[in-house]
Design a protein around this nucleic acid. Structure first.
Lengths: 142, 142
DNA sequence: TCTAACCTTTAAGTTAGGTTTATGGTACGC
DNA sequence: GCGTACCATAAACCTAACTTAAAGGTTAGA
């Protein structure tokens, strides 16, 4: 198959980047990747660059970008001014900071409750806490 | 309506706890709440306790519990041993700690990239970073 | 009595990021 | 030339937590 061109079938690509073939077809439908060409029989054939692109996509996901954002990043193509990229990143940083604050607060709330819960003979401190919590704060988590 | 019983219609409850009426019907279907009674015409009527219960639900959501977990907590009812609650909380704490670690790492990655991105005249440091990232780490984010 | 703002139900739609199923063609080793 | 593993497509399904739509009954106020 694909004798000596360096091209790979969907399954080979899938194995390399550790995603399901169905996911790759889904990415293609969403406009995130495109096979280099098709074989006579209609098989998708990808070159090594596709691997790079897919790793880029997975890395983008790993840092919390939605596929739509990643698509935008892919369309930029390195030359383009990175203003837009900067804005995307800055936005993510704001979100992340908010999450960090909320998670830390949440952590200590739960940890305190757990401490009291472990000590108490009857009744549950955590449940009691939850009952009172909504009065104090709007969101602890996002 | 509901002249001098202290009962409220779904819309009144919805307004008090700031959720949509449809959400309350959804919660009922899911077994999270139940109206005290129905009016002659079939209108749901709730007492003040329902407000408490709903605030409990929202507080639970705010700290990252799924509705199913919250349902379990509601069924416990304060008397019950809080072993199960403890396990739920401990589990959440583990998740939270993992998230904190990932978010912090992510924050500094993005922040570094952003700094370099702001300085560079051409090409985008962030995009370049993303291209290299997948080789270094599995997950930065959850 | 009319009308606007409620309320009821069942069923289907939404979002994101895929996965699964049904049906059928292709490639390769023995 | 057979079996098995792989590929193709379209369309349906999945989760969570809701929202929206369609069709119709109720209530309060002027």
């Amino acid at each position: 198959m694909a004798k000596h061109t360096g091209l790979m079938t969907i399954g080979q690509v899938a194995q390399q980047v550790e995603v399901a073939s169905s996911t790759l077809r889904f990415y293609e439908r969403e406009g995130l990747i495109r096979p280099t060409k098709r074989s006579k029989a209609g098989y998708r054939l990808f070159d090594r660059e596709a691997l790079e692109q897919l790793r880029f996509i997975r890395a983008g996901q790993a840092i919390g970008f939605a596929l739509n954002d990643i698509k935008a990043l892919l369309l930029l193509d390195e030359e383009t001014s990175c203003k837009r990229v900067q804005r995307l990143i800055e936005q993510r940083l704001v979100e992340i900071d908010a999450k960090l604050v909320n998670l830390k607060r949440l952590r200590s709330t739960l940890n305190d409750a757990l401490g009291r819960c472990r000590k108490s003979k009857r009744g549950c401190a955590v449940v009691a806490d939850l009952k009172g919590m909504s009065k104090k704060r709007k969101t602890l988590y996002s």
